[in-house]
Write a protein that binds this DNA or RNA. Structure first.
Lengths: 215, 215
DNA sequence: CTGGATGGATAGCGGCACTCTCTACTATCT
DNA sequence: AGATAGTAGAGAGTGCCGCTATCCATCCAG
């Protein structure tokens, strides 16, 4: 197919597709003439992935490029690749880290049987966690860390479901892509469902109002 | 205190504080002269809240204004106020909604005993959920909806912990603020912990590598 | 009295994600 | 064969957002 059809089938405007091509988010099509190229279903799939990363995952163009680079690497171990992807889809957070928050994270790791000393700033994920706890402290919620264990309890259930899903619905070829999509879309789904759960609890405790939070 | 000290204590540059004042994110200080104003700890607290919403919650300035407006309303019922805040901190997502995804959401509600017909597009929260499932479908993950029940199971534990936390650590005065902070910071914490759980699972299943995902 | 900070207001900047425009073609329809 | 529409590629332009810089008339501490 040519770029016009790619645009029609994906809903992405032609100039935007050209922009993504320039930015290296999409591989170039096969040139059949100096000004004619063919694109296939793989391009369409990749384009939809890009849109999902941007729209649902909230990633920047540069972030998408990082993720795709990790997805496309073939010579690393799967575990390392997953780690790289996770780093790419995790924003560390910008503020200063409260040392107490760092301690909270370390204590959390130790409670989980993590004996070796963890450098919190070494990974985007742990940095994100510490920076969130830091922010909580800065607005007066010193005890937020007490929630960590409960969160982990709930998230173990969720992570297990994620693993089963990936194992069931993806071959080893696209397991990385499934993890990316599942993680980012899952984040959004989790946000939404958590809000629904809050609304339900608030309705039970405070009464009144319909189930959905639009009033 | 004057603006310089407010800046020093919060780490926010003076021009930025002025900008927030202009945008109505911070209430004006008490003028003691035509060009002298005093700020108190309440301003500091509010400023830190704004930074937390921006940095950790990823809200835009306009979004912060909406949230603060909901936080500051005193004449509505607590339940409605919570709903308003939830709407303010939930981005609906931009793409087209797949009708099948809408059906998935409705089926989910029905499984949860929600008998009345829910208009998915009426609330940012349900719209967010539908749009995430939509995005999943568009990249070929039609079965993502199967995760919803497991997610809810995990999130019930988390929502319960959230409720206990709010009940324990906040008076009725700042219960709304606690919900906002807890929801947004909680979102980030949940993201991070879920990634840690994934890393742990991946390490167990795929072997190799250290616990933290930086490698 | 004086040097640095302040309130208030307006203008400017840098980054990002497109979007527009242009040229030189090519494909297709009639 | 001619008219019309589409295309690759590349640079410039656009609009928004979140600050940041500059200015001026004070004001206040030392």
């Amino acid at each position: 197919m040519r770029v016009g059809e790619l645009s029609k089938r994906s809903g992405v405007p032609v100039p935007t597709i050209k922009y993504y091509l320039r930015e290296g988010l999409l591989p170039a099509g096969v040139l059949t003439s100096p000004n004619q190229a063919h694109y296939d279903d793989e391009h369409l799939r990749r384009l939809r992935l890009v849109r999902a990363l941007v729209d649902v995952g909230g990633l920047s163009i540069a972030g998408v490029r990082d993720v795709l680079a990790a997805v496309d690497t073939h010579d690393e171990s799967l575990h390392n690749k997953l780690g790289a992807v996770q780093e790419a889809i995790s924003h560390p957070g910008s503020g200063e880290l409260d040392p107490l928050a760092v301690e909270d994270v370390q204590a959390f790791f130790e409670r989980q049987g993590e004996t070796e000393c963890v450098d919190v700033t070494e990974s985007n994920v742990t940095h994100m966690l510490a920076s969130a706890l830091s922010a909580a402290r800065s607005v007066g919620h010193d005890q937020f860390r007490d929630l960590l264990d409960s969160y982990l309890e709930g998230l173990k259930i969720i992570a297990q479901a994620d693993l089963d899903y990936v194992a069931r619905h993806s071959s080893s070829d696209d397991i990385i892509e499934a993890m990316v999509v599942g993680t980012l879309i899952g984040d959004t789904v989790i946000k939404a469902v958590r809000r629904l759960a809050h609304a339900q609890v608030s309705r039970e405790v405070l009464g009144g109002g319909p189930a959905d939070p639009a009033s």
